[in-house]
Design a protein around this nucleic acid. Structure first.
Lengths: 339, 339
DNA sequence: TTGTAGGCGTTATCAC
DNA sequence: GTGATAACGCCTACAA
């Protein structure tokens, strides 16, 4: 497993190192026979170009940076996997850092990655947008940057987002159509764009169906099951359990379901529960959980494509891609129980 | 955000680049004042050493490779996060590749990482051990390598493992003590060391408690909920539902529970279910799932420590660390329902 | 079509 | 203490 260099090959074949180098970079003229010979010998010797040297001389790292809030949950795991898969086939390596839903950490991560000379960056911002100024500056310098999922509207940058408003609207309207009248929305972190958009969709559905303000609530939560449980506990204390919960994600929904069931509520007969950003557990829990499925894989891939386009062609235009999903209606929100 | 170099600093301060370089590597003699001046100016200019150049000249990449079977599930996500966290503070970057439970992919991953000059490798092998010869060769060359979790006994290499036999024994005996007489073990992939060890623990418990062969079964499965469901379906078809299921992981256990409940079995009154490698969902599902918790974070960190020791001191001894966990008894396996 | 030589940004080995 | 200078392994004008 000695790491051979082009020098070794050159010496062995009595050619110059530039010739060997050219054999690997087919943008240069080189006699077909010598090229073939070089490639063959290299293959035999098990030669692999030294990535460090290549990067140094090309002044690019062939590394891509990805900053996500976390990847303990299925969602960002899938995002990361999809991005890695996309870039691996293009010869890039993907460095992933997680911000732990902390803005300062996120900034540090982005800076670390940029200082480490990643050729481009995909960021799924955490709540709050204190770092936008930093991103703005990088963008102005022409740094390839794509935002994923949680976006500050105002920044002129390429984005890949899910149409939260629309699908939040659909999910809410589904609950209304099922006859649930008093619906509470557990909304996730306050400053998140996804939260705002979903709240917007939720309200739209309320307005459209003439549901009065006293018959719905928007309750800020985190993203963990425990937080869903706490909310339900608080509501029980105030004898304020609604007909239905529309939750920011499946984990919160599961927490809500657990607490409700533990206290004798029947789902969906007494209370309905709907999740968002569907995970595998939705189908496995009893009752099965209605949720909005997002095209996670496609979104991540698209983010990769946009970034790569931007890296290889610095004058590529800013691009915004909005994705749609599907509402998977399951037992947790269906009154006329069919299954 | 121009990337300054030591040259820029040298020019500005009218010193040589070697002096500047020395200011950053405190193993050389350098006057305190010049050093301070250099560091201060560098700071002001926002100078960051170019990692590519550093790596090239030092002939090490400051990268660590990690190969895991997957990281969609919580378990390997946590492993990866813990390893990254450990190495980040030491100035290393961690490159993660997943093998999709495929041996060939695993070999490709390991090779890719080594060719990319990672300074060391942590591997959680996938089922089957066809790649052991490759690893053996690398080890013989002195390549820093640590195995995690799924181990081929015979290879003389540093390992970090969980004491599967012991905790499988405990989990099984817990079921026996609860009065469950006919217990089936859904064991995961056949060729996996973790599978073998847990089967061993399971059998030991059977032997010790004089349970006859006709009263237990070991059924090979995968690691997904769907596979747990399939097994239950098959058993129902043959009217062969046991008193208790001891499952390879929580996902399979959840699949088992779902299928059982869908078919009117009560848990734990009719059938008990126990998982392994506890995940967050264990506490959230109804009934709560008994499972064996592993010190995931500590194990990953230990693997990092061993690897780092091996990298910085090539003559460091081979080390095997065996971890213990805890059996978290919950409602899914307790007949005298206390809660 | 091929070879020479300089450069990428460091570190490290010499002298001075 | 500090300054040249040669690596590290590759790419790429420019020359031949």
């Amino acid at each position: 497993m000695k790491h051979y260099t082009i020098k070794d090959i050159a010496k062995k074949l009595n050619v110059s190192i530039s010739t060997v180098s050219r054999a690997f970079n087919d943008k240069y003229d080189i006699k077909k026979e010598t090229k073939d010979l070089i490639l063959k010998t290299a293959e035999e010797m098990g030669y692999i170009p030294n990535p460090m040297a290549k990067k140094l001389s090309q002044k690019r790292s062939l590394n891509i940076g990805v900053v996500v809030p976390e990847f303990i949950n299925e969602y960002y795991s899938e995002i990361v996997i999809a991005i890695q898969e996309f870039f691996r086939s293009k010869g890039y390596q993907v460095l992933v850092m997680q911000s732990d839903e902390d803005e300062t950490q996120e900034l540090t991560n982005a800076q670390t990655l940029i200082h480490n000379m990643v050729d481009g960056l995909i960021v799924a911002p955490t709540a709050g947008y204190k770092n936008m100024q930093y991103y703005q500056s990088r963008i102005k310098e022409g740094y390839p940057l794509v935002f994923l999922n949680r976006i500050e509207e105002s920044v002129p940058v390429s984005k890949v987002v899910f149409n939260n408003t629309k699908w939040s609207f659909f999910a809410t309207e589904h609950l209304i159509r099922q006859g649930y009248q008093k619906i509470y929305h557990l909304s996730g972190y306050k400053d998140l764009s996804v939260t705002n958009e979903r709240v917007e969709g939720f309200k739209k559905a309320m307005d459209k169906n003439n549901i009065q303000k006293e018959n719905y609530k928007i309750i800020e939560t985190g993203l963990l099951a425990e937080e869903g449980m706490e909310v339900v506990e608080g509501l029980m204390f105030h004898h304020d359990i609604p007909d239905a919960f529309f939750c920011v994600n499946d984990m919160v929904a599961i927490g809500v379901m657990k607490k409700l069931k533990d206290n004798g509520y029947r789902i969906p007969e007494d209370v309905a529960v709907v999740g968002f950003t569907e995970t595998r557990i939705a189908k496995l829990i009893i009752p099965q959980l209605t949720s909005v499925k997002q095209p996670t894989f496609e979104m991540a891939k698209k983010a990769g494509e946009i970034l790569l386009k931007r890296i290889t062609n610095p004058s590529a235009e800013i691009e915004t891609q909005i994705f749609n999903g599907e509402l998977n209606v399951r037992k947790s929100s269906v009154r006329e129980v069919s299954n």
